[in-house]
Amino acid sequence: MAQQYTRKMIRDVFIKMLNERSLNKITVKDIVRACGVNRNTFYYYYTDVYAILSEIFQTELQAAIDEYNDTLSWEEGFLVATKFASENRKAIYHVYDSMQREELENYIYNVSGTVMIRYVEKVSDGISASSGDKKLIASFYQCALTEMVLRWIASRMKEDPDTIIRRIGQLFDGNIALSLKRSASLNDV
């Protein structure tokens, strides 16, 4: 229990600092001072500040997976998954502008993939689309969503993500089911 508390405290302090300053301006010394722990305690949990960042993205991805369920549309699932980014905009800017951008890109790509794979599976219920086509459809939307989110971050998140995602949902409503039905009809040929 104490280990979980300490680990969470280190992560929370790191996120707070990342919302205040760029990633390359955060040191282990800063974190241990703010947490009131010694360096050995920090190194017991993490090898460096980048390990904290990686764990945060992994934890957020798992939370998104756990929270997403079959009653959610892909739009709602994606908004749940991007909640961390919306709540920590400055931290996300600082990661995006750093040498660790790839961590952020991988996180967004994985979140998009998880949401779309689950959604395509849900929509394909009763449609005899091939598994290869299901993967292709999910991958297409995964890549599109990933790039849209990265562009949104690059533009400093000026637009409301809820508005954008819901609009995309309205514009493309039914396209996934239509693509799955096309797959089924191509398999019948």
Rank of each mutant, 00 (worst) to 15 (best):
V189D: 03
D30H: 14
I92C: 08
Y109G: 01
M157K: 07
I31A: 02
V37P: 01
S128T: 01
K83P: 00
A91R: 10
E87H: 13
L18T: 05
A2F: 10
D133Q: 13
K16Y: 05
D125F: 13
K25E: 13
A34R: 14
I108N: 08
F57N: 04
Y96L: 06
Q58E: 14
L178G: 08
R33M: 10
I52R: 09
E20N: 14
I165Q: 00
I137Y: 12
N106L: 13
R151W: 08
N40C: 03
G77I: 02
S179L: 12
Y119D: 04
K134P: 03
S112D: 00
V32S: 08
K90E: 10
W74M: 03
Y5W: 13
R33W: 11
W152M: 06
V13W: 07
F78C: 01
L171S: 07
Y109S: 12
R151F: 12
A184N: 03
F172R: 08
G77R: 05
R7E: 14
Y46F: 15
G113I: 00
L104T: 02
L145V: 06
D48W: 10
S22H: 13
E159P: 00
S124W: 12
G126D: 02
G126P: 06
C143L: 14
E105T: 10
L61Y: 15
L180Q: 07
Y46S: 00
E103G: 01
Y45C: 02
Y50M: 03
I108G: 07
L104D: 06
I10K: 09
M157P: 09
V13Q: 11
R167V: 00
R11T: 05
K16Q: 12
I153K: 11
D162V: 04
F14T: 06
S183T: 01
I108K: 12
A184Q: 14
L72W: 07
Y96M: 12
A184P: 02
E60I: 02
A154Y: 10
C35Y: 08
L180T: 02
L104Q: 08
V80D: 03
N175H: 10
I52K: 09
T47C: 02
K122V: 02
S185N: 03
W152K: 06
G77E: 01
R7I: 02
D173T: 08
L53F: 05
S183V: 01
S183G: 01
Y5V: 11
N19M: 05
A144T: 08
F57Q: 04
F140H: 14
F78V: 00
D70G: 12
E87R: 15
M99I: 07
N40P: 01
V28Y: 09
N69E: 02
N19W: 07
M148R: 06
G132F: 13
D97E: 15
S73R: 06
Q142W: 07
V95D: 04
C35T: 09
L186R: 15
I117G: 05
R101W: 06
A91F: 10
V115S: 09
Q100K: 14
Y46P: 00
F84L: 02
G126A: 03
N106F: 11
G169E: 10
L178C: 04
E55K: 12
T6M: 11
Y109A: 09
Q3V: 07
F42Q: 05
K134D: 01
I56V: 15
A91Y: 09
L79N: 04
S22E: 12
T59G: 02
A34K: 15
A154Q: 15
Y43L: 09
R118P: 06
P161L: 14
